[in-house]
Design a binder for these strands. Structure first.
Length: 437
RNA sequence: GGUCCCAUCGUCUAGUGGUCCAGGACACAGCCCUUUCAAGGCUGCGACACGGGUUCAAACCCCGUUGGGACCGCCA
């Protein structure tokens, strides 16, 4: 016997780790860590046709990426195994036979079916949804063991949660209707019922269940789009829960310290990419420049920008130039492409917007700029301002063309800071390429 | 169809009978800053689904309506 909190996440390996599953896993993890309890990972692979070992691995990797570590599971073992339902067939059969012997279940062909007793009120007090009850006559008899010898979900989940000594069953709201059936089985087996906490569903923009139409649905897709696991974690935590004050940006550890199942909300939540982007941006901002560069590496590589030619320090500084611009690592890579490669500039800009009058003015200004004694942003800006004043021009008349020739874009960080980062020689070469120096 | 669940700004939410002509965040708009875009600051827009009760008093309690959703599989 133990009074230690034990929770579990029990995915079936029939696909990647999707948003709903990740959300459920995260809340279980939070509750386990908050209480110093154990987080158990159980694989519900009794659907022979759809389950694969490959998907199981994908789910495990997705959880690791999100930072959800488990204490017991198919890969790490533990004192309550095995952790794959397909390896627990004997246990299911043993208890099904007990039910057969006591006359509470009957055989139908190869299957074993539980006889639902009439006149019973099945009630439980959900941590999130409160008191819920259902009359037993609204239930059909429950198949325990299928003709193929494998247990059904509603039966296996009861056997497993009890034998694994799960104290809190934290799962999606779509299981509320299954709970009365499971309570019936707990009682028939003579077992205590665990605490139930159902979590609100996560919906797509159309307020329907998330589907392919809603874009990314597996956590891997978020990784590949450039989200930081801490950002996704933070956003998921905010879906159906809040700390009770105005804090919205927090680390995993901070969330553990604040989490409480009693503060979980009941209403289904719509997944909002805008808010996720905001939260992710905040997490990108709080990590160190070196870490930021490390996480941006794959996206620079993907864009063919050869970050390996640069030092870690150089890459970190390139990113620091962005000063908060960019909501994903993918955007960080995109917004710094001109720093790593002049080719990306040439592909975007051909200087065809400049007429001879413009070029004349710009050549005179850039000549002065390239001669500046100290290659420093403040000095450049000061020089540019006085030069423009003396020549009847506006600062943007020279700043924008400089921006275009250096970055190939109409928006960028402060252009003199870009020039400083690029260096006097590179700046000169880019200006020369466009015939402006 | 049966059973169950849900219902505050476009979205995430605070709110558990008076302190709420409803607070925060994202998004959106405007202003400031400014060489552009962000970031930051300020301002604005914007909700208690509807109808009945209960009460001196209701976003909060009760009933109904409407609208969503889930489950009702030898899927999980």
């Amino acid at each position: 016997m133990t009074d230690k909190t034990r929770v579990r996440f029990a995915p079936s390996p029939t696909g990647a780790l999707h948003i709903g599953g990740a959300h459920t896993a995260l809340f279980n993890w939070l509750w386990a860590r908050r209480n110093g309890g154990s987080f158990v990972l159980r694989i519900e692979d009794t659907d022979l046709v759809r389950s694969t070992g490959e998907y199981e691995q994908t789910i495990l990797q997705g959880m690791r990426w999100l930072g959800l570590d488990w204490d017991e599971g198919p890969d790490v073992g533990g004192g309550h195994g095995p952790y794959r339902q397909s390896e627990r067939i004997g246990i299911y059969l043993e208890h099904a036979n007990r039910l057969l012997d006591s006359g509470q279940a009957y055989r139908e062909g190869e299957a074993i079916i539980f006889q639902v007793p009439p006149g019973r009120t099945l009630a439980f007090d959900d941590v999130v949804y409160g008191h819920i009850e259902m009359a037993s006559e609204t239930l059909k008899n429950i198949v325990l063991i299928k003709s193929d010898g494998f247990p059904t979900y509603n039966y296996a989940v009861v056997i497993d949660d009890h034998t694994m000594e799960i104290t809190h069953v934290v799962r999606g709201e779509d299981h509320i209707s299954n709970t009365p059936k499971q309570i019936l089985l707990y009682e028939a087996l003579g077992w205590d019922v665990p605490v139930f906490a159902h979590l609100p569903m996560i919906l797509g923009k159309d307020k329907k269940k998330l589907s392919k139409r809603d874009g990314a649905t597996s956590v891997y897709e978020f990784r590949d789009m450039g989200y930081h696991p801490d950002g996704l974690f933070n956003y998921f935590a905010l879906l159906g829960w809040n700390p009770g004050d105005d804090r919205e940006i927090f680390t995993r550890e901070e969330a553990v310290g604040m989490f409480d199942l009693a503060r979980v909300t009941k209403k289904a939540a719509v997944f909002d990419t805008d808010k996720l982007n905001f939260v992710n941006q905040a997490h990108i901002a709080r990590i160190s420049p070196v870490e930021r560069a490390k996480l941006t590496l794959p996206f620079w590589n993907e864009a063919g920008l050869k970050p390996c030619d640069r030092s870690d320090e150089w890459l970190a500084q390139a990113l620091e130039l962005l000063e908060g611009r960019g909501q994903t690592f993918r955007e960080l890579a995109e917004y710094t492409d001109y720093l790593l490669s002049f080719d990306s500039v040439k592909a975007r800009y051909d200087a065809s917007d400049l007429d001879e009058a413009n070029r004349g003015l710009l050549r005179r200004f850039f000549a002065a700029l390239l001669e500046i004694p100290s290659w420093d942003a403040d000095a450049m800006e000061a020089l540019a301002k006085t030069w423009c004043e003396d020549n009847g021009a506006k600062l943007k008349d020279v700043a924008m063309p400089l921006r275009w020739t250096l970055t190939g874009r109409k928006v960028s960080p402060g252009i003199f800071h870009v020039a400083v980062f690029l260096g006097r020689e590179e700046t000169k070469q880019r200006l020369c390429h466009y015939g402006l120096a």
